[in-house]
Amino acid sequence: MQSLTSGLGNSSNVNKGTINPQQVKRVLISRPNHRLGNLLLITPLVQEVQTLFPNATIDVFIKGNLGPIVFENFTNVNQIIRLPKKHFDELGNYMKGWLKLKKNKYDLAINADKNSSSGRLSIQLVNAKFKCFGEQATDLSSQFSDYAHIAKYPVYDLRHFLASVGMNVSNTPIPNLLLQLSPEEVAKGKALLDAIVPASKKTICLFTFATGAKCYSVEWWAVFYERILKEFPDYNILEVLPVENVSQIHFAAPTYYSKDIREITAFFKNTAVFVGADSGMMHLASAAQLPVVGLFSVTKTDKYAPYGAKSVAINTNETTIEDWIQAIKNSLE
């Protein structure tokens, strides 16, 4: 499908005139994807839109059922327009989602992933005065060293687009990933943590699982886990389990298991650092805005690295266990 829609939509061809930020009242952000990580990765864009257009409401066009969970407490988010995760199984609801999108009128519509065929199609079809497809005539990677990051380039693209239609936009730091928690949720997370490990110690949170080739072997984790125990005797070492309820360290550490995404985030919020491979859970820890030590062996660090809050991405193919331990120590400082 991407080859069929690669030439679909061009911001310069459809946008005429100058945008007035005071008149932007309705904004659409399109990311028709169901994966947790991909939805978390557009939260910086949502925050950017909230900052640029504080009086606007935001509709989000996605797939699946995670949108209300991820965007809860984002006060500007008005409506989540959903396509079913498996559209061939729910063709009626799939068509209803597209028709609902078509009925709305927006002042600004933004494609959050320039490489998404369905994202570009949605912006082409929607009724909007200004449309940001995400394509750029200018190579922004030469201007911004972190442009390749999947959570950051949509913000850079939006800023570049808005400048092209007459809006003054400052190059402030890109917002971090964020899942907005209530004080009650954070307090519940602390109670859950304190029920598992002593509250007198800070907690290093391990996530030993990942999908496919991103998952490190049992043997790899055995060596790393033993070294973590040796280097951090004054910390609780706890493992957060995946939905599959498996452990690459054979459940050697105290464990926490939940399928509640917001509860997991609140649990993370009360720990000192997250250590784990590139995964949706890693991005969830980043959205809790705690330090994250992301372990990479097959995916690109410049595209998926955790950032903010003393977070760091480590290519384990090019570093040693000494580097990994030092990264944890740096994040705890």
Rank of each mutant, 00 (worst) to 15 (best):
F144I: 07
E135L: 08
K214N: 15
I196N: 11
V70W: 06
P173F: 01
H34T: 15
S247C: 12
H283D: 10
L206P: 04
T57D: 13
N115S: 13
W220N: 01
I228L: 09
S30E: 06
N10L: 09
I314P: 05
T211E: 12
D302L: 00
T5H: 11
F71D: 11
I110E: 01
D89N: 14
L91W: 09
A56E: 06
Y307Q: 04
V155E: 04
S122V: 02
T138L: 13
S286L: 00
L52N: 02
T5F: 15
R159Y: 08
Y156I: 01
E185C: 09
N20R: 09
V27I: 12
W98M: 11
D260I: 00
S30D: 08
A191L: 14
I150K: 14
P233E: 04
A305G: 10
L125A: 10
L99F: 12
R120Q: 00
V27C: 06
L192Q: 12
S117A: 15
T203R: 02
M281F: 10
D260S: 07
F268V: 00
S200A: 13
N111G: 06
L295M: 10
A191T: 13
I174T: 09
E333D: 15
S12F: 13
Q2G: 11
A210M: 04
I58E: 05
V165Y: 06
E263T: 08
Y307F: 14
